[in-house]
Design a protein around this nucleic acid. Sequence first.
DNA 1: TCTGGGGTCCTGAGCCGG
DNA 2: TCTGCCGGCTCAGGACCC
Length: 426
Amino acid sequence: MGRSADLPRAGSMRAGCGTDRGCHLLHVDMDAFYASVEVRERPELAGRPVVVAGGSNPAGDRGVVLSATYQARAFGVRSAMPVAHARRLCPQAEFIPPHFPRYAEVSRGVMALFREVTPLVEPLSLDEAFLDVAGSLRRLGMSPAGIGEWIRGQVYDAHRVTCSVGVGSSKFIAKLASGLSKPDGLLVVPADGVLDFLHPLPLSALWGVGERTAQRLRRLGCATVADVAVIPLPTLRRALGVACAHHLHELANGRDERRVVPDMAEKSVGAEETFAHDVVDRAMLRRELLRLVERCTAALRGRDLRGRRIGLKIRYPDFTTITRSRTLADPTDSAHEMFAVVTELLEGNLPRGTAVRLLGVRVELLVRGAVGGEQLTLDGGSSSAYWPDVERAADAARSRFGSAAVRLATLLETPERSGGGETHLP
DNA sequence: TCTGGGGTCCTGAGCCGG
DNA sequence: TCTGCCGGCTCAGGACCC
């Protein structure tokens, strides 16, 4: 997944070349993960172009490609490409909606396998992780590259999906290496060959360089990583800002001191949805908002988190996007409380008659630990105090009887949604 | 070509209190 | 009392990643 497709292929640098001494960081990346899992579930699709199309409505055209098999990629289909475009490029492909619980289950199995190798596993997403194997070499009696090959074999044997492994002396190099070894490969970048490996690569190889930053760098006369490495830091700072300039300058010179951090704390939790058709109707927008708030706060409670800053995101039909937020005195995981805030933000920032393409809600400034029932306040009365308990009870019912088991009355009238209505009461 | 949904990080403006 | 400075916080938005 991602940008590795922009990079030149590894060619002769694949598995086995170069010494892996000093290369204790591994980056493991599943190949076309979602699509591979779908093919595993439906073996008749093996060898065919398969596209997992995301967004809320894969059958329609307001969505993007989440994952595509290499047979589909041969037609030019790429991740994040609009579905309509992918259909034109490869009409014979099988388009499948995503099944995230299925991918999460495979991911849990794969991550557990990594933890058999080392406790220092830092998952980046469902389909990739960094591993620090420095402490495992003696115990396992293997070199880093040997461990990488062992992992590749185990992942395939246990889960019938392939992965690629990059082995390097830093996270950045290991990640680049896995991208270049795809699909189903392993690449070692020797510690003393980092700059030779890095400098011919295009600007997009640098972590943090997207289209905008690449444009700015090209304006400074840069075309490759080598060019960024030699550009004076003050020049880079003026173009990109202090933090970004320093970060890119370090990477371009092969310096990356970031360690593998297991159990990274979450910073925010959110939910958003693009409508199948732009929505003007206020009542419908409020119902969508409530649905998003329910989803978001259920996720918070499921992870035993509460947050203090509540944000609203509105995207208009012309794709301009605004965000508005409010910081509360105390952290909350209550849908009731969050809905009151985002409704106020919506009313204050959306002129009557304005169409909306997307709505999103987000909670930040997270703290761990839910409170069982909130403190009564003199001015707030008792209602806000009992809502968290009601919502936790509803969570329990939903987890036992399904997501439609308990719903707020406001949601029983199904608004037009991009994914079609799914409200079916038992 | 026409752009999802989940996130993280950074920057800059504005406000406030010391 | 007024002004300027500074740091911390909040808020909005941009850019990026998978």
